[in-house]
């Protein structure tokens, strides 16, 4: 069903993996504002669905212990970009990556030929647009990543599950119904359950694809608050089509438009004094 036909054009060339040189410092991606230290960065990342190129040489840094937001109009490739990080596209035939996504501190190129996608997915975690709890108990949902990693010790799992549920601000609500079906929770609770599931394995980078778009304002507020607390422990990359949300919660913002990175910078600066006309038009609501 999932014939894997992904090939990375990237050959592990070491100078491609290093930071761009100063000559690039004044370019559109705002590299004079390049954050430090980095948890990850993409380097000239291109992506193809069949012959259709959806991402065009996107280079974005992901600052450690920060929240980086990815904004842009619908269809510009935000989800596609995010799903490159954990090689989600490998599940579908006919997809192709070019360029590199480097995970720090070991400078591992996620897209390298020799890299097993499962190894990458063990290090990252993802929360999807629509809550997708498994048809299992609340407890087993959170324990899933640990079980997949072969953890057997009941005490370890108990502890991790509680810790993850607390981090996802869900513990108080579900501690008495850990054996209830995860799918029986409310939408907002389900999404927090998915966040707990993602946190239970201590990921280095948390990828969120419009995690609040299916939720009401109160549930959205809860999750935004939660992400603020989480960023001390885990680097966050979040896709959102809600600019207010990006402005509220993120430290860095990348604005994409039809597969290209238009502007990257500190959120405050990008929203107050955008360097590009397109960015300004977008954030002032003139299109998208």
């Amino acid at each position: 069903m999932f014939a894997i036909e992904c090939a990375s054009a990237y050959r592990g060339n070491s100078d491609v993996m290093t930071r761009p040189t100063d000559s690039a410092s004044s370019d559109s991606a705002g590299r004079n504002e390049w954050p430090k230290p980095l948890k990850a960065e993409t380097h000239e990342l291109s992506f193809f669905y069949g012959h259709r190129q959806v991402l065009k040489r996107v280079s974005v840094p992901i600052a450690e212990s920060n929240i980086t937001a990815l904004i842009g109009p619908s269809g510009c490739g935000k989800s596609t970009f995010l799903r490159c990080f954990n090689r989600m596209h490998d599940l579908y035939p006919g997809t192709r990556y070019e360029g590199a996504i480097v995970l720090h501190p070991d400078s591992r190129n996620v897209l390298g030929r020799e890299v097993d996608p499962i190894e990458v997915r063990m290090r990252l975690a993802m929360v999807f647009q629509k809550p997708n709890p498994f048809p299992k108990s609340v407890y087993e949902n959170v324990a899933y990543g640990l079980r997949v990693r072969g953890v057997r010790d009941r005490r370890v799992i108990d502890e991790k599950v509680e810790q993850a549920l607390r981090s996802a601000a869900l513990w108080e609500e579900v501690k008495d119904q850990l054996s209830a079906l995860g799918t029986s929770l409310s939408g907002g609770q389900q999404q927090r359950l998915c966040i707990a599931r993602a946190l239970a394995t201590d990921p280095e980078l948390l990828l969120l694809d419009e995690p609040t778009s299916a939720l009401d304002p109160i549930a959205t507020g809860n999750i935004e608050e939660l992400l603020q607390d989480l960023k001390r422990r885990v680097t966050i990359l979040i896709v959102t089509h809600n600019m207010q949300q990006a402005a509220r919660i993120s430290d860095w913002t990348a604005f994409m438009y039809v597969g290209e990175l238009v502007e990257f910078g500190p959120t405050k600066r990008l929203f107050t004094t955008p360097a590009k006309k397109q960015t300004e038009d977008y954030i002032t609501g003139r299109f998208g």
Binding site: F2, L91, F128, N132, P133, F134, Y144, R149, C194, R197
Partner: peptide, 15 residues
């Protein structure tokens, strides 16, 4: 739904 499978793969699960 494919969504459930993706959730599992994203956790590092094998096929």
């Amino acid at each position: 739904p494919m969504m459930l499978r993706e959730g599992s793969y994203a956790m590092g699960a094998t096929r």
